[in-house]
């Protein structure tokens, strides 16, 4: 019986980390396997959120409170340092996401598609056409 309780405690104590891994791998899978560039950026956002979750999970103390000081001298506060790092990371994350989306918009305007497979084909055709033109003029 005590063994079972111990195991339950182990599972509860590590559940956050496992879920973080699953989230991170979902984000990685979306990023590498989907051809659509907007979908890739959403995947990167999932990946990013999973890292936020890992940091904040490590700073949490059970029975603690948010790191805003109160008069009670016995109060336990969660670790404020990861909060600072992640807070700025979220705002930087949206700025870089916007940059990625702007690149997607420009790619769509230039090539008429945002599917990776079609972009590679177009790129290949353009290189081929250039090579043929270069050969013809010589």
């Amino acid at each position: 019986m005590s063994e079972l309780v111990l195991d339950l405690e182990f599972i509860v104590g590590h559940y956050n980390y496992w879920m973080f891994v699953i989230l991170m791998m979902t984000g990685l899978y979306v990023t590498v396997s989907r051809g659509n560039l907007v979908k890739k950026i959403v995947g990167l956002n999932i990946f990013q959120t999973s890292v936020f979750m890992l940091y904040i999970s490590m700073g949490k103390i059970i029975g603690g409170t948010a790191p805003i000081l109160i008069d009670d001298p016995d109060a336990v506060y969660s670790n404020p340092l990861p909060h600072v790092l992640i807070l700025t990371a979220i705002v930087v994350g949206i700025a870089t996401t916007a940059l990625g989306l702007a690149l997607v918009v420009r790619i769509r305007e230039t090539y008429g598609t945002i599917e990776e497979d079609e972009l590679l084909v177009l790129e290949h055709e353009m290189e081929f056409a250039e090579a043929v033109q270069g050969g013809g003029s010589r």
Binding site: S57, I68, I90
Partner: peptide, 25 residues
Amino acid sequence: LDAVDVAFTEAAVGAGISTVLLLGT
């Protein structure tokens, strides 16, 4: 998880601005 400042930022940025920019794209 006690990260009230981060939660605040994520709700405003992630659910607000990010969705608007993605829809604009």
